[in-house]
Design a binder for these strands. Structure first.
Lengths: 354, 354
DNA sequence: TTGAAAGCGGTACCAG
DNA sequence: CTGGTACCGCTTTCAA
């Protein structure tokens, strides 16, 4: 139930439009100076006589003047704005990177505009166009999806860009990526050592393509060590998705002793499904995550996972952008990060009885 | 360790700047038409002869033309952009509302720009100025903090605005709020009925002010029922914050039988602290959350909490904005939502032994 | 130190 | 249907 009460009659809009269009010119007129002077006060305050400045400032105050940013960047030609595109801000993995970029950008006097794609390629394209249209000074794409000839569009725009996870280096495009294979290998190595031979792999739709590195790393392990068996399942990159995927996996008839999840979020979802079925972790089943989110310490049992340094990634991406945007010509490059294994409570020796 | 490899020498930037400034005019010239015609093709495609349009479209394609959105909104005067400001996007509570607004906005042809304040009033002010500067067509503020005379600035801007949680209705400002008191009362009522008399209350810094409704509701309960005792603690609105607050609470010497948390995130943090100390939930201690995040079902034990309909709130906020932005003059109003109690596994009878 | 004026890249109205 | 053109609000020479 909700209560709705009107506070103002619908037609009480008289004095609102007063301030609808306060332009530089009006401020100038009120202060008895030219628009150029007002502009100077707003920017290089030095070049204006103090008394004049005070007068202008007062006019700005009285008129509640807010400069039109569109006009500003149109006239100025420069941007001081970075665009950040992420696949799924709901997953703290992306949020942590986003937040670091934003924070660094602010420190350098940049504004940030964000776009979320929900892993949808059309949305990615849309967002890229939007960012180009806004003439951002740099573009960071933390996405797992890709769209045909997107790279060419970006290259054509000439905007300094940095991709995480996907894409290839180009003239104006730098790439940051994590060596997921190494991470997966470390997990399998550990589990194998603990006696596990039958693995379940839980991905999410965007990562399911056989081209994906994490997926491939798992499948390659099977090829390498014949005694290993793997069955995979995938659903959305959410808690629910992980739960559903686990359910599908367990319904397949295959009986893994360990479930390797593509990330911590889906792992927490899987934990829930196991708990509901009375399958104990790690006694009956081992579960691993990936990312080392804060949540992986707070869930129960705490997740064995692989640490991906999200802050470091954010710093690298932002720095790459700003250094190029500020005309310090740097080479486009590729940066690869090695992840580290983190042992917690969700894994243990294989339960041979099962 | 990370490997860094350069793919391109630093000075290979020759053909990049080719496309740096493709304007309407260049497209027009290439297509052999006027800028007005190109503009028409981009907007009211109907009014242009098909052959002409094809020619223009081809020129756009060849030049990789992307309209400058700043110029567009400057000339057009209108915005088709909504601003959304939130306190802490890291908390899914805010994200869920944000996502709903964004989705609804897109359906109505609006773009969305987001700003995160981290509960900092200065950041709130900064963000509001930014949104006004961008001349957004509507502004949604999902924030718990407030800054002096902020409401006046917004009212002065004339931008259709909707606040969640804070603020008061004005000429152009609508308010949506949840009756937190009712939610807290339901929790206390349930716990009291289960025999609990000594409560701990965990807030977060932004909510700690005694003016805050949730805080007050708890304190009022104490006044109403003399046998109830409450001790409060607060930290950040994060998993860690909840954990720290729980630790502080338990270190105070006071021995509650139930801990009421301001929201689910801090509750999950508190659960972790209790687990580390070997305090069983709910046998030794009951814990409640607030918000009914997805996470509250997936944590262990699943949280007893209060449901806040975040999607509904998002819909309401967005609709309020768009209806006003599209010149359907609607009254500014206040909308109050009643939350519902959700019983799960983190609460039980008071443990009289403790 | 300050003002006048030429754009920045579009939109939209008015003629043709 | 299409072209010419007057702005939109601000920055930035160039002169004064």
């Amino acid at each position: 139930m909700s209560r709705i009460s009107s506070y103002y009659p619908a037609n009480r809009c008289n004095n609102v439009s007063v301030c609808v269009t306060v332009s530089l010119e009006k401020v100038a007129r009120r202060a008895g100076v030219s628009t150029a002077t007002v502009s100077r006060v707003l920017n290089n305050a030095e070049l204006v006589r103090k008394s004049t400045r005070t007068r202008v400032l007062r006019a700005i105050e009285e008129l509640k003047y807010h400069p039109n940013l569109h006009a500003r960047s149109l006239a100025g030609g420069k941007s001081k704005t970075l665009g950040v595109i992420v696949s799924n801000l709901e997953n703290p993995f992306f949020f942590d990177i986003y937040k670091t970029i934003e924070s660094d950008a602010h420190k350098s006097g940049y504004e940030v505009v964000m776009a979320n794609t929900d892993y949808r390629p059309e949305q990615l394209v849309r967002s890229i166009r939007l960012m180009i249209g806004r003439r951002v000074g740099g573009l960071a794409a933390v996405v797992s999806e890709m769209a045909p000839d997107l790279m060419r569009v970006i290259e054509g725009s000439g905007i300094p860009t940095v991709f995480y996870d996907v894409g290839t280096p180009r003239a104006n495009i730098t790439n940051v990526r994590v060596n997921y294979r190494r991470g997966i290998d470390k997990i399998i190595e550990y589990l194998y050592g603990a006696g596990h031979r039958r693995f379940g792999f839980i991905g999410h739709h965007a990562i399911l393509e056989p081209i994906n590195e994490r997926m491939k790393a798992v499948m390659d392990a099977v090829t390498r060590v014949p005694e290993i068996e793997v069955v995979t399942a995938a659903d959305a990159d959410t808690l629910d998705g992980g739960k559903q995927a686990a359910r599908a996996l367990l319904a397949s008839g295959f009986h893994p002793t360990a479930i390797i999840c593509v990330n911590d979020i889906t792992a927490v979802g899987a934990l829930r499904e196991l708990r509901e079925r009375g399958i104990r972790v790690p006694q009956d089943m081992s579960v691993t995550g990936f990312d080392n989110l804060k949540l992986s310490e707070f869930c129960y049992p705490a997740l064995t996972t692989v640490h991906i340094p999200r802050e470091r990634i954010g710093h690298l991406m932002c720095e790459s952008l700003i250094s190029r945007a500020d005309k310090t010509p740097a080479a486009a490059q590729e940066i690869v990060i090695d992840p580290e294994f983190v042992l917690r409570d969700s894994t243990g020796p294989a339960n041979r009885a099962s």
